[in-house]
Design a protein around this nucleic acid. Structure first.
Length: 898
DNA sequence: GACGTGACTTGATCACATATGA
DNA sequence: TCATATGTGATCAAGTCACGTC
């Protein structure tokens, strides 16, 4: 290979661098354990009017046919199941597929729900009454008259500004961020006391382009709206360092089946789902009644497929009690059907509680071994020989040429430390800055191009081949139900891409091998065949109190783990999702008292109590994360409890400016007006400290969460984020949805979604082509406006009986009637309007990520119910995977409110 | 109570697929 | 038909929080 001068891709890295009890106390909160919480949640939810507490998705199916509900009563379906639509389909979709129109479905659903509505309402009031005064020591006051119960709404005014990520973002970018403004709502009465801060603030962008025009005029916006084992040399070392830490296995004495008689010979191990079925059946047959999956026992308590909708509703309501009623009939049913689909909600989810009874899966799939390409990199301009191991790591580095990591000294330092170990002391390569990886990078580009140039048939064949190889790893059978596995692929080796200024970025993430991996599987299930001949799993466990199928120690941080879990659409995940939202809904009943209590503590003499009060206030009002302590070998980011003095600036008379790096090193910049006692308290916490000192020096997340649990069972800091996000969506949708077509309603939804994303500070980097796209749109609009002008002239002339003027090229235009011209003008106007609206949306959302909140914070029942009420096809809001993830929420009552 | 471990959720980003428009 | 925009799923890093141990 020709030697090139190392002109461009050369590194200059030098490896030489080297008082009183808490007011909130409750009677019996000494142990607010999960069980207690679960029962509280169940109680609360059963008292609410969602019309589906504890309910599983009926026969609502995700379009991919993979949601667990879709598998109900099925034998194991093929992964290529036909798409089946949800019952709240778009009219378009339903006309092609079903007899009943979606409207019909909606209506039916509504009337059905209407029946239960009244009862539900009664239930709500009962629930509220029962839960109204959960906090001991807080006297119920007339909320409307008590300023304390309106900690912010009545007194705040401010501007906030959430800025862009990391130091890499320009100041300009920051100034262009959406900047919510928080304002006072003047009303003395505050019927929205349950609402989050945002519901009462007026958050506006301080940049003209950022605020969406259609909404700016609305002063009554809800909350948001206003605010290796890599070769033998490392083997021993790694085995030592990756020894399984003292886990809490259920069956300690039986941890390793690797050498036990139970381990089948490789040839005996089932490798297809078909064989999995057989094994599950065998497993089931051996079980006595107690071991029948509760999900299946539940199955028996709900009528079969032929049940009417109303029966489904009834079944829904008795789900929790049905957990207890295990009846023999279910066992019979179980035996009679191959794979009885569980109802959507699994029985237990508390820590240490049984999560499954039988679990069968095929383990994990490993990335293919490294194939050396033989392209020689250059050292001092000369090609150098590398072993395949050395070349592999060099290639990992070379392909990152175009990334920001290449400008980071830490990245290169860490890479060199690890790579030089692989090279050995006698290797020609002594310094990274004399290396030229260009040839490998060029090779990489060529490979990419080759791949791109493949015909669609070739691509398809490759895809099918991959699917064939992976098929058996994609599914697990949990309590007899086929469920999708999430991340069944073992992470390939690479260079660690820590975010922000992560001290370990660039370190080699070595290849994970079978003996790094611990498998968790049902006791009677066959142990998955190790896919690499001659190797074996590290350990086999049968722990049914956890949901992971496999784990290995993170090679970058060996004390941490990488888990293989079921996919988001699985029943287990759905169950915990639902519990999360129920907990957040429960907070709604407590929030008034919690706010009153922390407001009183702003001025208490006990500094720790003061700090707890102020921190809770910030978490509630600004949706800050809790902020756990971090080690030195992690990126230097903070949350509420770990805020430094220098992260908060007091701006008289009562504004606070927050500026810190949060999760993922995303910058949070926000100036907000706060209540005077909060402002003063922050000032006191800062006094006598340096900028790098902890603002809340008497506080950490465990103290804070322990305190929160005294206020509400199961309450932790993160519940506030879910609560604020969901209630904001609920209120905005309710207030802002107007009559109009579906497109307009979808815009309303997006707007609400955007406000939530702003509250949660969900950012995304501006797309590289953003400015080009904007200029293109501007050009088009200008062009259309020109056309419009011409059309108007032509219309004037046509009305006077004159022919149209010639066009820009001097050609004669068609002589059109005034009516035709008027029609054209209207069409052009509509086009311009649409383009301007698109442009506005694009600008508004250029740094806001909507997806995260939709996936993690917004109770899907709010969305589904809203879609039902306003006849918006759910597919307009949820994509295929969200439909599968939220299958449990699809049969919600249209009148559901968060 | 501090600390470490373990299990889970949350989150930004990237590559690829699909839609859209010239 | 091709180029570009947009949507989607996968990936894996980085959080939260419960619990065990000392």
């Amino acid at each position: 290979m020709a030697v090139e001068a190392p002109a461009k891709y050369v590194y200059d890295f030098d490896d030489d661098d080297d008082n009183q009890p808490l007011v909130f106390k409750r009677n019996n909160t000494s142990s607010s354990k999960h069980n207690q919480l679960n029962s509280e949640i169940k109680k609360a939810s059963s008292q609410r009017s969602d019309g589906q507490s504890g309910r599983q998705a009926s026969d609502v199916r995700a379009p991919n046919g993979q949601s667990s509900s879709a598998q109900k009563n099925n034998t194991i379906p093929s992964s290529k199941s036909p798409l089946v639509k949800s019952p709240i389909l778009s009219p378009k979709a339903s006309t092609s597929s079903a007899k009943a129109s979606p409207v019909t479905n909606l209506k039916a659903s509504t009337s059905l729900n209407d029946q239960s509505k009244q009862a539900s309402k009664q239930n709500i009031s009962t629930a509220v009454e029962e839960e109204k005064s959960p906090i001991k020591g807080i006297t119920e006051t007339n909320s409307d008259d008590d300023d304390d119960l309106k900690p912010l709404s009545a007194r705040l005014k401010g501007t906030s500004n959430q800025s862009n990520k990391g130091a890499s973002n320009s100041h300009t970018d920051q100034s262009q961020r959406l900047v919510p403004k928080i304002e006072v709502k003047g009303s003395a009465e505050d019927p929205d006391d349950d609402a989050p801060l945002s519901a009462r603030f007026n958050m506006k962008s301080n940049t003209g382009t950022s605020s969406s025009k259609p909404y700016d005029s609305d002063e009554k916006k809800p909350l948001a709206s206003k605010i290796q084992q890599n070769g033998s040399t490392m083997k021993d070392k790694q085995q030592k360092s990756s020894m399984l830490p003292g886990k809490r296995p259920l069956d300690k004495g039986n941890s390793s089946y690797q050498s036990s008689a139970k381990k089948p010979k490789i040839s005996d191990t089932p490798t297809t789902m078909k064989s999995l079925q057989v094994m599950v059946k065998a497993e089931k047959a051996d079980e006595d009644d107690d071991h029948i999956p509760i999900a299946q026992r539940m199955k028996k308590s709900t009528p079969s497929d032929s049940k009417t909708s109303s029966m489904k509703q009834k079944a829904t309501k008795v789900v929790s009690s049905s957990f207890k009623k295990i009846n023999k009939k279910s066992k019979k049913e179980l035996k009679n059907s191959k794979y009885i689909k569980s109802t959507k909600v699994l029985p237990s989810s508390g820590d240490g509680q049984k999560k499954w009874s039988t679990l069968v899966h095929n383990g994990v799939i490993f990335p293919p071994p490294y194939k050396p390409h033989g392209v020689k990199m250059l050292y001092d301009g000369q090609p150098v020989d590398l072993t395949p191991e050395q070349e592999e790591v060099a290639t990992m580095f070379a392909v990152m040429k175009d990334t920001d990591y290449m400008s980071k000294t830490q990245f290169k330092k860490n890479f060199w430390e690890d790579w030089s170990k692989l090279l050995g002391k006698k290797h020609t390569i002594k310094k990274l800055d004399r290396c030229d990886f260009s040839p490998i990078y060029e090779w990489h580009l060529q490979e990419k191009e080759k791949k791109k140039q493949m015909s669609s048939e070739e691509k398809k064949a490759l895809k099918e081949d991959k699917l064939k190889q992976e098929e058996k790893y994609m599914w697990a059978i949990v309590d007899g139900v086929k469920e999708k596995v999430g991340n069944f692929r073992v992470e390939p080796p690479g260079l660690f891409r820590g975010r922000g200024e992560h001290p370990k970025m660039g370190k080699l993430k070595r290849r994970i091998r079978p003996n790094d991996i611990t498998i968790n599987i049902g006791k009677d299930a066959p142990i998955p065949e190790c896919p690499i001949p001659g190797e074996r799993w590290k350990d086999i466990k049968h722990d049914n109190t956890v949901t992971w199928l496999a784990f290995w120690n993170d090679p970058i941080n060996p004390k941490e783990f990488k888990y293989v879990f079921l996919a988001a659409s699985s029943s287990l995940k759905g169950q915990s999702d639902k519990e999360k939202y129920e907990k957040a809904r429960m907070l709604k009943d407590y929030i008034k008292n919690i706010r009153a209590a922390y407001t009183k503590d702003f001025t208490t003499k006990d500094v720790m109590k003061q700090q707890i009060a102020v921190a809770t206030y910030l978490i509630d009002k600004l949706a800050l994360r809790a902020g756990n302590e971090k080690d030195d070998d992690e990126a230097d980011t903070v949350g509420c409890c770990t805020l430094k003095v220098g992260n908060v600036e007091c701006i008289p008379p009562n504004k606070l400016k927050f500026d810190f790096l949060g999760k993922d090193s995303i910058q949070y910049v926000n100036t907000v007006e706060v209540e005077l006692p909060v402002y003063k308290a922050i000032g006191r916490f800062q006094t006598g400290k340096s900028k790098s000192d902890d603002l809340f020096d008497k506080l950490d997340t465990s103290k804070l969460n322990a305190h929160l649990k005294e206020l509400m069972p199961g309450l932790t800091a993160k519940v506030f984020r879910t609560y604020n996000a969901s209630i904001t969506l609920d209120e905005m949708l309710n207030k802002e949805t107007k009559d109009g077509d579906v497109a307009e309603k979808v815009v309303t939804y997006q707007h609400a979604n955007k406000e939530v994303a702003i509250i949660c500070n969900h950012q995304r980097s501006i797309s590289k082509s953003h400015s080009a796209q904007m200029s293109r749109l501007t050009e088009k609009i200008t062009e259309l406006k020109g056309d419009l002008k011409e059309l108007k002239t032509d219309l004037d002339r046509a009305k006077k009986g004159k022919p149209p003027l010639k066009d820009a090229d001097g050609k004669r235009k068609r002589n059109l009637a005034p009516e035709a011209l008027e029609k054209k003008i209207a069409q052009t106007n509509a086009k311009i309007e649409k383009m301007e609206r698109d442009m506005q949306t694009k600008e508004d959302l250029k740094t806001v990520a909507l997806g995260t909140s939709k996936i993690n914070y917004l109770d899907p029942r709010i969305t589904v119910a809203w879609c039902k009420r306003h006849e918006v096809p759910i597919e307009k809001i949820f994509n295929k995977s969200l439909l599968a993830k939220f299958a449990w929420a699809m049969d919600v009552d249209p009148e559901f409110r968060f």
